[in-house]
Design a protein around this nucleic acid. Structure first.
Length: 259
DNA sequence: CACCAGCTATTGAGATATAT
DNA sequence: ATATATCTCAATAGCTGGTG
């Protein structure tokens, strides 16, 4: 999707980009080859080609691309940069930002999962997070990231943050993570099946007050499922949005003739 | 339960291409 | 030149919904 994206050209939004695709200009190098294009003056075409030539040298530079691309379309960067993705989900001892603490920070780089526990090695995880360039969450834009930043203001913003929650909503998948997983046929191990966020809070209490190692173990297992499933969801989200973008019809030319 | 980013719809100004 | 139609883009406001 990155190489067929033209939204960073001045005066190009979704409509014009879709028009370009229809005219056969389906990736960057085809635009450079194009001699003329109906509806686009040669001056403008030349201007676009110059702009594009200035972007191509940065094709591997995630933060540069994120800067020139509207946030709404950052998901297009996933395919090329997913090897740098860090999937994130936190557990806390309550919802109230500023009063509650992070209990478990779960990170998944696509291969390995790691849980960082409050009172043990949480800081280690925070440092890992601070270095991440592409962070992927479910609901992280209104929960995980603000929550973390309120407790640890020194944390830098990730260069790109993909929140799957609003993205999946665009595809028609409404509801919480568990509900969406169920619709998509993802199942969870029996031990943590049916667990919800509030029970994650209670598991932490049990670990704190009674030093019940089983409770912590279960909490981490729960977090692990949350985080690892994010990768599945990210793939589904990317493919879905790609399909939607490529097949969307331009809704302009419909003129009703009475009735 | 408190919170708040992202979504949607709307508006209006400014560009741009094309036909006459 | 003029008129028209289409599109971009920024600003605004209100709303929705999912997080442990």
């Amino acid at each position: 999707m990155l190489y067929r994206t033209f939204l960073f050209l001045p005066g190009v939004s979704e409509k014009t980009e879709f028009y370009l695709w229809q005219e056969g200009v389906t990736h960057w190098w085809k635009l450079l080859e194009t001699k003329s294009l109906p509806g686009v003056s040669s001056g403008r075409l030349y201007f676009w080609q110059q702009k594009l030539r200035h972007v191509i040298p940065f094709e591997d530079n995630l933060s540069f691309l994120a800067q020139i691309l509207p946030k709404r379309h950052h998901w297009r960067l996933y395919e090329k940069f997913k090897n740098k993705a860090l999937f994130l989900d936190i557990e806390t001892d309550g919802l109230k930002k500023g009063h509650n603490q992070v209990t478990v920070l779960g990170l998944f780089d696509g291969k390995n999962y790691q849980a960082f526990i409050a009172g043990e090695n949480l800081e280690e995880g925070l440092e890992l997070l601070a270095e991440a360039s592409l962070v992927i969450t479910f609901g992280g834009s209104f929960f995980d990231i603000p929550f973390l930043k309120s407790l640890y203001p020194w944390l830098p913003d990730p260069k790109v943050h993909l929140d799957l929650c609003p993205l999946l909503k665009r595809l028609g998948f409404k509801g919480g993570l568990k509900r969406i997983e169920k619709i998509l046929g993802l199942s969870r191990p029996g031990e943590v099946d049916g667990l919800d966020g509030f029970e994650a809070v209670k598991l932490w209490w049990r670990w704190q007050r009674r030093h019940d190692a089983k409770a912590l173990e279960k909490l981490v297992l729960y977090n692990r499922e949350d985080v690892i499933n994010l990768k599945y969801l990210a793939e589904i989200t990317y493919n879905g949005l790609k399909h939607l973008t490529l097949t969307r019809h331009v809704p302009a030319l419909t003129v009703s003739s009475g009735g």
